[in-house]
């Protein structure tokens, strides 16, 4: 039977890949063309929505400006530092709480209540405590992305318990060997899922803090461009944030794939 399955499935899909990529490209071009035509046809006034060509030109001009890259740098630093702090805290607390049944039970109600609190609720507090400094961004980023990783680490540790118990019982592995061969490989896929989710959440909160509070970065530049009437510039910056989002997604997927390439079960998207 296998002969038919391969004859039917794989080669066909291999053939359609270039066609799909071509269609995808056509889709992007179609979107840009529609965007170009809407202001040109006067459906929306160009002073509110400049044509795509104008915005793209503005974006490429921005690529040549130091100020643009400085803003990108500020956003990315807030993103990276915030993500790092969140992952570190989530790892420590996750392993600590996850490996004790008592702690896990005692904290679960608090976690259930704290986790859904939208991090943007902390904006006024951040403003009061840190003003428009990068710390404001960090506070929001860390709070929001912490839970993504923390929950996944808890899942991961819960998964280890079963495996570790059985393995330890049957083979009598030492502590170091257990960590190396059981704990780490079991928890890693969960951790990576958490980090990937946290990475995109962290970007959202970085931009939010800059936009609403005014801490330095691309978000603030967008708000400034909007209030200053530099409309093409604003759209160009919005596109730039989207590109950063795409790059972060691709990067995280790549890292996840690399670190988990040896792992038998590629974890599905549904598990959140």
């Amino acid at each position: 039977m296998t002969a038919q399955v391969t004859a039917q499935g794989t080669p066909q899909s291999r053939r359609t890949v270039p066609v799909q990529q071509f269609l995808g490209l056509a889709g992007i071009l179609g979107f840009l063309l529609t965007w170009e035509l809407i202001p040109r046809a006067g459906i929306i006034e160009p002073r509110f929505l400049p044509p795509a060509s104008e915005v793209m030109a503005e974006l490429f001009r921005a690529f040549g400006l130091t100020a643009f890259w400085l803003s990108v740098g500020e956003t990315m630093i807030a993103w990276f530092v915030g993500l790092l702090m969140a992952v570190a805290a989530a790892l420590v607390l996750g392993f600590l709480i996850g490996s004790s049944a008592f702690l896990a039970r005692a904290t679960s109600s608090s976690v259930e209540f704290l986790r859904p609190i939208p991090s943007v609720a902390l904006i006024p507090l951040a403003v009061l405590m840190f003003g428009v400094k990068i710390e404001s961004s960090l506070m929001l980023i860390v709070y929001a992305s912490f839970w993504q990783v923390f929950i996944q680490v808890l899942y991961g540790v819960a998964d280890i318990d079963l495996v570790a118990n059985n393995t330890a019982k049957s083979y009598g592995l030492g502590r170091m060997a257990r960590i190396r061969y059981v704990v780490f490989p079991t928890a890693l896929p969960y951790l990576m899922t958490g980090v990937r989710l946290a990475a995109s959440v962290a970007l959202i909160l970085a931009i939010t803090a800059e936009l609403v509070i005014g801490s330095p970065g691309l978000g603030r530049e967008i708000a400034l461009a909007q209030s200053g009437g530099a409309i093409s510039g604003m759209y160009a910056l919005v596109l730039a944030t989207g590109l950063i989002g795409v790059i972060i997604n691709m990067l995280m997927r790549f890292i996840e794939k690399k670190t988990l390439s040896w792992h038998s079960s590629v974890r599905s998207e549904v598990v959140l």
Binding site: Q4, A7, Q8, P11, Q12, R14, R15
Partner: peptide, 11 residues
Amino acid sequence: VYKTDGGDVEA
């Protein structure tokens, strides 16, 4: 007959 890149496969 299945058409594939590697030629036709007559099932």
